[in-house]
Design a protein around this nucleic acid. Sequence first.
RNA 1: GGCCUCAUAGUAUAAUGGUUAGUACAACGGGUUUUCAUCCCGUCAAUGUGGGUUCAAUUCCCGCUGAGGUCACCA
Length: 483
Amino acid sequence: MIKTRFAPSPTGYIHIGNVRSAIYPYLIAKQSGGKFILRIEDTDRARYVEGATELILDTLKWLGLDWDEGVEVGGANEPYYQSERKDIYHKWAKKLIDSGRAYADPTPPEVIDEYRKADNAKKIPFLYRNHRPKDTPEWHEGIPLRFKAEPKAYEWHDEVMGDMHSGPEVCDDIILIKKDGLPTYNFAHIVDDAEMGVTHIARGNEYLSSMPNYLALYEALGLERPKFLSLPHILAPQGNKKLGKRDGAKSVTEYRDEGILPEAMLNYLACLGWNDGTEQEIYTKDELLDRFSIDRIQNSGARFDETKILWMNGQWIRKIANEQGIDALYARTAGFWPDSAAAYPDAYKKRVLSIIYDRLKTLSDLRDMTDYFFKNPKILLPAIVTQKMLKKLSEQELIDLLSAAIEKLQNIPDDKWSADTLQAAFNELLVETKKKPGEFFTLIRIAISFAPFSPALNLTAEVLGKEATLARLNSVRTALAND
RNA sequence: GGCCUCAUAGUAUAAUGGUUAGUACAACGGGUUUUCAUCCCGUCAAUGUGGGUUCAAUUCCCGCUGAGGUCACCA
């Protein structure tokens, strides 16, 4: 059975540069009925950020990446916080000490720095094994424990990068356990993955250069190698560097707060660096689970394109409305309406949504795009008299047109106030006033919305209702008359 | 600097030892009785460079260039 894991360290939020190393292992495990594990790698007390774990869980839940084992849900290999697994690491460390593959290193950090500087000055690669202390004390907590490297060449297969190899020059005496008694990532992840039965390790390809040391550890610990997947980086908007917080990488939840749907985020990120060879762009989670394959993961970095995810989010907004119904989409919009909508009933907001949703790129667009449905717009006559189509009409002509519209619409009975009747009425007005749609419709549209854009005139008027529509037309007529 | 990795339009990608190098986003233009958007149609735009293998290379090999990663008691 395939077992994968996501093992973040709680040093802050999850951003789009690192969330993919949760998505891919999730897909790999779940598509084969395997298990996805969430482990928190909190061995660095200095970088620990209060509340970061909650942010991480929040992000995964929002994306729909549910884990089978790990923090909160438990599992056969508890605990899932590395800080609580000290005894386990020490037990494995003892094995290495007993077999002569690890030693306590009493060398002070300042001395190590001097070694490093000296080697750099001589332009030779700094390898700690060249400075291995002669007399090493018995190991106990409080002294760092180092691996004793036996340099040699390694070959391995990376499921993404292909066949890899390295020479003995990269094997070194890496720290296994720090002075504070907690293990380094290098040691801890190997122990944990083995104890937890992880079969596929997917992580960013910055770990590629550490592989020889990891392979040495598997060997020395008598552990079988899992399969390795080195994932390409997501690149910053400028340059070709991997995207990080310094480049302003936004947290995944920030996109949520801006009205990006989790489906769109998952879809976009899964397809950034992977494709199934077809021309399909929009994938549901189920489709991703069905189609995802390790051998089609890209092996070069990809840039996060905010424009494309906006497009994709628009696609998803329409997909949900069309396939699951407007109620399903409406359920996602809480918190995205303008303040002016607060007092309005759900039914009304739902009708507004039903005529505006195909204009949305993000849910937060609702805030700017629907205000005039909830409160009377401020009348700005220049918006009418200087409008490209309307400026050739005199104010009296505008007033006459508004009067014609008001009279026509007033005659529509309340129970016949619908998009269809309204369209018929507007068409009649077009004939009666001998005006082009570009003039007449523009006037009415602006008069009832004063918005740069709005849905079709008849739909807007229908949702607005007879009373509000007429009141707005009247106000504008009055304002023009007093001008 | 050592070691490692990568290289198709602005971006994400497809494809094959032989194609008019395909698609999507973006940009630009047009259509759908007003606007904006949706939808539809169209235009622009790419195999980094130099060798080699081959009848044929974007594809295979080598050099170069460019870019990235890594060389912590961080992960």
